[in-house]
Amino acid sequence: MQYMLMIYHEEAGWDRMTPAQQAEGMAAYQAYSEALAAAGALVGTGRLQPVATATTVRIEGEETRVLDGPYADTKEQFGGYYIVEAADLDAALDWAARCPGARHGGVEVRPLWAMG
């Protein structure tokens, strides 16, 4: 069973960190990714650039509307994800609790539809 761990955090918080703190944060994610991979649980991961780079597209009728900005303005922003393989929700929640994002934001856990 695959679950996506979606990391939400306050982007501005990252900018307020000292370079040393940022390096520490990167190292924590690096170690987490390696632990997932070593356990055979890592399916995929990605880190998103800030919401300032986001563009949202909708097609309404015949018209394609392209809007500057993220889908929703929120206090904390979607900043990255992991897709993990886990036996059940408890196993996925254990991985979420180990994710550095759970400390400086929130990690939403959602099962993926299984594809054929």
């Binding site: 408890d90 959602r110 099962p111």
Partner: peptide, 8 residues
């Protein structure tokens, strides 16, 4: 069912 909450 969908998120596979364990029965354990």
């Amino acid at each position: 069912r969908e998120a596979r909450v364990p029965f354990a």
